[in-house]
Simulated scan of single mutants.
Amino acid sequence: MSVIYILLTVSIIVAIIFFIAFIMAVKNGQFDDSYTPSVRILFEDELVKTKSKTITKNNNKD
């Protein structure tokens, strides 16, 4: 029965450590990027079009 108390105590301590690490990450601003995920798909399309245009422009100059 004493093993259960030891395991319970250790698991609560580990949970508290992870919770403190999460709170510190939130306070340091690690999860503050709310703009990029909403427009990421638009930027990927623009990059592909821009690269293909520059390749065709460079080929036409030769």
Rank of each mutant, 00 (worst) to 15 (best):
V3A: 08
P37G: 10
I16A: 14
I55Y: 00
I16V: 14
V10W: 01
F19L: 04
K57L: 12
E44G: 13
I41A: 01
K27A: 00
I20H: 03
T50V: 13
T50C: 13
L42F: 01
F19G: 07
F19R: 01
D32V: 13
N28W: 04
I16M: 09
L7S: 04
F43S: 05
A25P: 01
A15N: 05
N28F: 00
F19S: 05
T9A: 08
V26K: 13
F19V: 02
G29F: 12
N60A: 12
K57N: 11
K61Q: 06
E46V: 10
M1P: 00
Y5K: 14
F31I: 05
D33S: 09
R40E: 00
T36C: 00
Q30Y: 05
I17K: 02
I6Y: 00
I16Y: 02
E46A: 10
S2W: 04
A15L: 09
F22Y: 10
A21V: 09
I13F: 00
T54D: 08
F43P: 07
I4G: 00
T9W: 00
S11C: 13
V10K: 07
K51C: 03
M1C: 03
E46L: 12
D45R: 15
S52G: 14
I41L: 00
I23L: 15
S11A: 14
I17T: 13
F18S: 08
A21C: 03
L8H: 02
I23T: 09
D45F: 13
V14Q: 02
T50Y: 15
M1V: 04
I41C: 03
R40Y: 05
K51L: 09
T54Y: 08
N59K: 08
Y5I: 13
R40I: 02
N60C: 06
S34M: 14
L8E: 09
L8T: 10
M1K: 07
D62K: 12
A25Q: 11
K53P: 14
T36W: 15
I55V: 11
G29S: 09
M24Q: 11
T56V: 15
T50S: 14
T9P: 04
I4A: 05
S34P: 06
L7A: 00
V48R: 02
I12Q: 09
V10Q: 07
V39L: 01
D32M: 12
S38K: 08
F43H: 11
V10M: 02
S34L: 14
L7Y: 00
I4C: 00
I13M: 00
K61H: 07
I16S: 12
K57E: 12
P37F: 02
Q30L: 02
T50G: 13
